[in-house]
Amino acid sequence: MTQQIYRRFDPWRTAPVQEIDRKEVLASHYFSVDQVTYASAQNKQFTRTMLNESTGDTIAVLAMTDEGTIALIEQYRLPTHRWTLELPAGHPRDSSERPLEVAQRKLREEAGYEARSFTQFERFINTPSFSNQHTALFYAQDLTQVERGKLGPETPHHDVRLVSIDEAYDMVIAGTILDAKTVIAILRTKAGFGDLERS
């Protein structure tokens, strides 16, 4: 019987390509787009288009009420031409707004809650094949209802749905909830946080 040896994964080992040129082709408030030229180990050149975050991580908040429900926001998304159910989430207004401040602002504006406790429990790369965008997930507890703000023109009157984690999990499995950050947060919560939920 042969034994297979697996080498330990090292995400920071030497890159197999070298960046030789970068040009910004589009700049917006939250993102910029670059055309980047690389040289491979065989000295062959190729170009890729990269999406870069301009102000920092996307932030999403899984807010747990005293009744054990979480807030999901109904939003209309232009690129996919469909309504989605998502956690309260958004980007920093500028590079000076900290992740916790974004979490507090988006929970208040989109879901109509303030929380006494915020804990970051996850951070992931959204689409590593063409973007450096990260999303950080926060868990919020001890909620108080406040007046909500307004979303953008695509969803001027957004609705908030309060559902249990079990209901949210069922919606993920059924394909009702498709937004990646919301799926990841619900699955992580369903699996349990350990001491996080009791902090």
Rank of each mutant, 00 (worst) to 15 (best):
D10W: 00
E197H: 07
D142C: 02
E122C: 08
A168Q: 04
F130R: 13
E101L: 07
K150E: 10
G152A: 10
S199H: 14
T84G: 06
V17F: 12
S199P: 07
S131D: 04
A41D: 13
K44L: 13
I177L: 02
A41V: 10
E167N: 10
L51R: 11
V163M: 02
T144Y: 05
Q42K: 09
T47Q: 10
A89M: 12
D66E: 13
V33L: 15
V146F: 02
G175A: 05
H91L: 12
S129V: 06
T2R: 15
L26M: 12
R123P: 08
H134R: 13
G192M: 01
H157N: 15
L78K: 15
I73W: 01
G194L: 08
Y76G: 00
D94A: 09
F31S: 13
I173E: 15
V25Q: 09
A111E: 05
M1W: 14
A27V: 14
I73C: 06
H29L: 15
T135I: 01
Q18C: 11
I173Y: 09
T119V: 14
T189H: 11
Q75V: 10
L196G: 08
I59V: 15
T47N: 04
I184G: 00
L87G: 01
R148C: 04
T182D: 00
Y38I: 04
K150I: 11
P16W: 10
K150R: 12
A140L: 04
I70K: 00
E74W: 07
E74H: 15
A168P: 06
A15N: 09
N43E: 11
R148G: 04
M64K: 09
F130L: 12
S129M: 06
A27F: 14
G68E: 05
I73K: 06
L151A: 12
R7C: 11
R116L: 14
L62R: 03
S96P: 07
F121Y: 11
Q145H: 13
L51H: 08
E109C: 00
K23C: 06
R123C: 13
I173G: 04
R161C: 01
P153T: 08
I5E: 12
V146M: 05
R13L: 12
R188D: 11
V102Y: 00
E67N: 11
D57V: 10
H29S: 14
R148M: 05
E197Y: 03
E101H: 07
V183Q: 04
H81K: 15
R93P: 06
V61K: 02
G194Q: 04
T47K: 07
G192I: 07
F138P: 01
F193Y: 15
I73T: 03
R148N: 04
R108P: 02
M171P: 04
